[in-house]
Each structure stands twice: as C-alpha cells, then as structure tokens.
Design a protein around this nucleic acid. Structure first.
Lengths: 197, 197
DNA sequence: GTATAAACTTACCACTTGGTAAGTTGTCAA
DNA sequence: TTGACAACTTACCAAGTGGTAAGTTTATAC
C-alpha cells in the first residue's frame, strides 16, 4: 500500500476513480484522466501498464474503502453500529456519490465481463455485523442478506437518481425527498433490538 | 408509431435496446448493433441519422413500456393493483433484465448528460395509483414517493446484481435469495388496506 | 562527479469509432 | 416502360482510442 496520501500512484487512482465513476469504463479515456491530472496518458501507462489494470486498482481501492467503512463504524452494541452504519452510508451515498456510481457501474458491467467481486468482503462483513443484532441473530442467511441488500439497494438507487430527481422535481422538492428518505430509513432501523416477529 | 411488430425500424430499436442495455451507450457501437441484425451500420444511420438519436428512441420506447406496465395492470382495488404491479415488476426485472439495466444506465449517465427523463411518466402514474390505496391516501407526496422509490430501488438493485450474486454465492444460493427477496417484498406489501400507523 | 533508476514526455502506430457521399437494389404506382 | 422512392450497401474519412518505443528530466546513492 502507498504510505503517502499524495503519492503519484494514489493521486492517479483517485483521479481515475472519479472519471470512471462519472463516465463509466468505456467512455473514460486514459487521455481524459491524464488531462485532469496535468500529465500525459503515458504517465498512467507507466504505472499501471494498461487501462484495465488501472480500472482494477480503482475497484480494489473502492473495495478497501467499503470494507473499512464497516470496520471503523462506532457504537457500543451491534444494533447501534448497524444503525449508524446505514445512516452514514445513506448520507455518504448522497454527498459523495462517486463510490456509489462505481459500484452500480461495476454491477452493470459484470453481466458481460466476469471479474472479481469488489463488494464481497464488504457484504460479508456487513452480514456478520447484522447477524449479531437481536433482530437477525436467529434468521437464515438468506433472510438476513435480503434485508441488508434491500436497504443498500434503496440507498444506492436513491443516490444515483439524485441528478434525475432534482431535474424532474426541482432542488427544493428533492431536499424534502432527501429528508423523508432518511427518516424512512431511520424508521426501518428502529426495531433492531427486538426479536423477529 | 410503427404498426407492424417486425417493421425494420422496430426491429432495429429492439436490437439496439439489448446492446445498449448490456454494454452501455459508449461501449455499444453502431457496427456491433448492426452485426447482430445482419445489416451494416449505415442501415441504422439511414433510419436514425445518428447514434444518439437511436439511443433516444430506445429510451423513448422504454418509457412507453414502463408506462404501459402500470396502465395495463389488472386488479379490482388500487391495493391489489399496486401489489400485483410490484410483484410483476420484481419478476420481470429478474427474468427480463434489460429494461432494468437501461434504466440504471440512464440514471448513471444523467449525471453528465442532461436529458429528458424517460422514467417520469412511469413514476407519476405509479404515484397516482399508490395514492389511491388506504395506506397512502393521506400521506404526503414525499412520503409516498420515497416509499415507492425504496421498493423500486430494492428491486432494481437486486436485479442488476443478479450475475454478481450468482458469481459470489453460486446458482442454488441465488435461487434461495430470489425467493426470499420476493417473500420480503410480498410482506412489505401486505398492509396496503390498513390506515397508516 | 558519475551511475542508476524512477517518473515522466514526445513521437508514433494500428485500430475502431461515428458519420458522409454516392451508388445499388427492389417495389410499386401511373 | 418508366419514374420515384424506400431500404439499403460499398467506399471512404477525420478523429479518437489504447498501447509501444525511445528519449528526457530529476533525484538519489556512492
């Protein structure tokens, strides 16, 4: 791993991450990413050798970020941790949308290109955490997973719809939607201390 | 509108729809779409003039399909109609994933290209239907919309994750997930006849 | 002072892309 | 028979793509 936050390699991955998120793998060009960094595309090729390797590194860094977002969540009980995790995720997805876009694009492109799954460690860790809550301790893996995935899906879809919703209904209406969305998520996370019904 | 299902124009839009869904706008090439149809790319340009016009027609056809999926839903009460609509949507999204992919890609690409919103008529009609149910008749627009969007998001995210989930956990495990997902959706749609809590 | 290596740049290449121009084929009405 | 038009195809082009090869700058080690 790079130990300097501003190491060229890390800077390149960060910039590439943003461009891949906004445009998608094919629409993003090495020259475009390089332009944004003030270098030539050969600087990228010097470090990563090819475009797909750069993309893989971007996804790998994304995977690390997702995983550490679970491992570093604060809270005394599993219920509190899971709650704050989801609420943070919901806010993060909205104000820092790039990771959400990367995940969505990776899922869409996975139909054609069979790759390694950057989300797996994240999902497994999230499942392990949720399994410790009273609500889900006795549930089957499938039930637990679907409950998790439902919330992630809802959060992700809302986040990537941000621009569209703002365009369709206006900025003020979207702000109301944002708060309502957050409130509904909070309500859905209210009964984690209770046993399943 | 084309009155013949096998009119060249309609055939072209259908084929283009599939390719755009699988690869995304930029990765899809006119030559690739044309190859799949057994014609040259100039056949496509002859009808649509340019790639982006073809894409717009694909999105427009998608919009029509989405809207008519609501307008043609069967049921005697609004509650029953909404329920069957969501359950159908959930199944459709899984076995006929292309439209779901198109929607997701359109949402992602909307960040950069401000376009017309193919989902709007669909969402408005869905909102109007849901507003007739007892559960949501007295709710605010924002609450209603977020509830709808949450379910659509969950369905869409699960559908576009299909390949990834199958790859991560295996085909049998995914089948269990599929049924669990459907069961959880059915449970969430159970209390539409009741007043809000 | 010099060697070495990392971090680049300039120049170039083969290939694919969307798009244009012009020609070809087939059908059908007058 | 001929004219018109739709539905194409062949040939071509400028621009942009990822990638290679070779040279240049800069810092560091000895």
């Amino acid at each position: 791993m790079d130990q300097y936050a501003d190491s060229p390699r890390t800077r390149y991955i960060t910039a590439a991450s943003a461009v891949f998120a906004h445009k998608g793998y094919h629409a993003a060009s090495l020259a475009g990413i390089a332009d944004q960094l003030g270098v030539t595309k050969q600087a990228l090729l010097h470090f990563f050798g090819s475009k797909v390797v750069l993309y893989e590194e971007v996804l790998s860094a994304l995977s690390d970020r997702l995983l550490s977002s679970i491992e570093n969540v604060e809270g005394t009980t599993p219920e509190a941790m899971l709650r704050t995790f989801f609420l943070h995720l919901s806010q993060d997805a909205l104000c820092n949308v790039e990771d959400t876009q990367l995940v969505a694009r990776a899922l869409l492109d996975a139909q054609t290109t069979s790759e390694n799954w950057p989300m797996k460690p994240f999902l497994d860790a999230l499942g392990a955490l949720a399994h410790k809550t009273k609500r889900w301790s006795k549930a089957s893996d499938a039930e637990l997973f679907c409950w998790i995935y439902q919330h992630i899906g809802s959060i992700q879809h809302f986040a990537i719809s941000q621009t569209t919703l703002r365009g369709m209904y206006g900025a003020e209406a979207f702000d109301v939607l944002k708060e309502t969305h957050q409130a509904q998520l909070r309500a859905a996370l209210a009964d984690l201390e209770n046993d399943p019904v």
